[in-house]
Every structure is written in C-alpha cells, then in structure tokens.
Amino acid sequence: AETTMRISLQLPMKSHLGQNLKMFKDEVEATSNGDIAVEIYDSAQLYKDKEVPQAVGSGAIEAGVASLTRFVGDVPMVDIFYQPFLFDSEEKVRKAVAPGSPVRGPIDEAIQGTGSTVLWWQAYGGAIMLSNGGPISSPEAMQGKKVRVFGKTLGDFTTAAGGAPTIISGSEQYLAYQRGTVDIGMTGVSGVQSRSLWEVMDTITVTNHADIEFIVVVNTDWWNALPQAHKDIIAAAARNAENSVRDEMSAIEGRAYAAAKENGMTIYTPTADELAQWQAVSQPVYDAFLEKTGDAGKAMLEAARGF
C-alpha cells in the first residue's frame, strides 16, 4: 500500500465503535484498490483514550479515537456536551453534531489548532444513572450518595446535585457497584450491556443528562501530505461511517435497554417535574462552563438552547 493509516482505539473490536472503524477500513481499502491500508489497534494496545490527543497531535501515530472530552485540556468548549440536560433528545443531539453547526463547527476548528484534524464523530449515546433499590429520579435521591463519574464536569454536576463524586475506571466499575464502593453509577447504556452491569445494579434512570461523543482524529501534517485522491476516499468513507453509527445509535441503545429489562432491571424515566428539579440544581455547572470558555462558549450555549 502507498499509504498506511494506523488508528488507535481504546475499546475492543466488538464494541460498536470498533465495528464502525471496521466498516471504514473495509470501504477505504476496497475503493482505493489497496493503495491505502488501514490498521486498527484496538483495546488500547498502543494508546489509552486519554493519551490519544497528544499522540495524534504530535504525529506519533496517524489516527486515533478518543472521547470528545479528552480534548478538554486544549479545547474547554468540548464540555458543552456534558452540560447537564442540554442535549436530552436525539433531535437536539443531531442538530448539535451536524458538520458545521454552531456547536460542532467551532469545536472542530479549535481541535485543528492542536495538530489534529477531525475526520468524523462517533455517536456513543446518552449518559444514564445506575442504582440499587429505586431510581435516582431527582437530586434528592442523590443527597450524600457516592457517585461513580467519568470526568470533571460530571463530577461538578454531582457535587451541585448533593452527591460525592469519585472517578472509577471502566474496568473497576463492576466491582465498585457490587461491593458498594459507590452507590450510584454514571455510564452510557451500551456499557450496561457490554459489562453485564445488571448483575450488580437493578435500576436504570434514563436521565440522558450528558451526550457522550467520540471523535476520530488524524494528524494534520500527515493528512495535508496525502494525495488529493486519497483524501477524497478517506473523507467519503468517514462520512459514511459517521452517518451509519449516528443512524444506528438509537437502535443500539434500544437493544441495550431491552437486554437490561430482560435481565431484570427496572427502567425509570424521570417526569417533567423531576427533570425541572435536576435542571434547577445544574446552574453552577453552566456558570463554570461560561467562566472557562468566555464569549465563544456563551455563543455556543445560546445556539444550543435554541435547538
């Protein structure tokens, strides 16, 4: 092959993000008649999720997949997706992640400044809450409870809602719930299925309080040096991969909810009144976001509220 594109992925191949990369690889290799080889290094063989921005930006590897929030150190605006209950429906998420939208546009542009170019966004679904013995329907249910979070903004949200946040890695999640190290968990619903979390938690509260997005980035210098024909092939395959995973996302989540129910979990959707209570306690998180991101963040937030 004339061009080799190596992609680092934290999750295993069997995850839906892995399958999405596989689809991209197959299309690129077929349409380029083998001129471009795509090698996927899954399960963090080369880099962990949090190392991807630096690894790709510095050119140590051509491409990588990372959770969008991993770029928060460079681009604080990415935390817009973790602002509580801002994107709580598929319709709003789709408007936000449309290429060039007032939310995604400035983010893609800012990431460009880190030495990486965004190829496509991979949908991962909404964040939900896990608990035992009843739903976490309102902030009252979180008072004084220990909560597993992933990332600073969700931690701030937990604090604002009266809980005590603890960062626990994906691999220790199962035992942390089983042993009661934490009382409440936050995760994507597909994680409930892949890790069989129904064995240790009995209730899902469908809060969708944050939208989890992954992005596939390539090193900008590497990308700019590619022949135009190769760029076109890769960009086309990336677009197809992005649309495919976005369209499938609700079906993937639907299957995960069905599996959870089948395995005895109760699935609770908060009422409009309860959601209003959640939103009321979330204000400090929004304030912190505005303070960190200034006018650009303000414009983005206003656009998002208009969706």
């Binding site: 080369l46 880099y47 962990k48 190392e51 630096q54 690894a55 510095s58 050119g59 140590a60 590897i61 890695s169």
Partner: peptide
C-alpha cells in the same frame, strides 16, 4: 519508520497509572 515520541509517551503513561 515509527515515531520515537512513543518512547517518552510510554514512560509517562506508565507513571500515570493510578
């Protein structure tokens, strides 16, 4: 033909494991 940056990255990543 791979980037030697991987060496310091690997060292940092090791020390950064909780």
């Amino acid at each position: 033909g791979f980037s030697p940056l991987m060496a310091p990255q690997a060292i940092l990543s090791t020390m950064d494991g909780f």
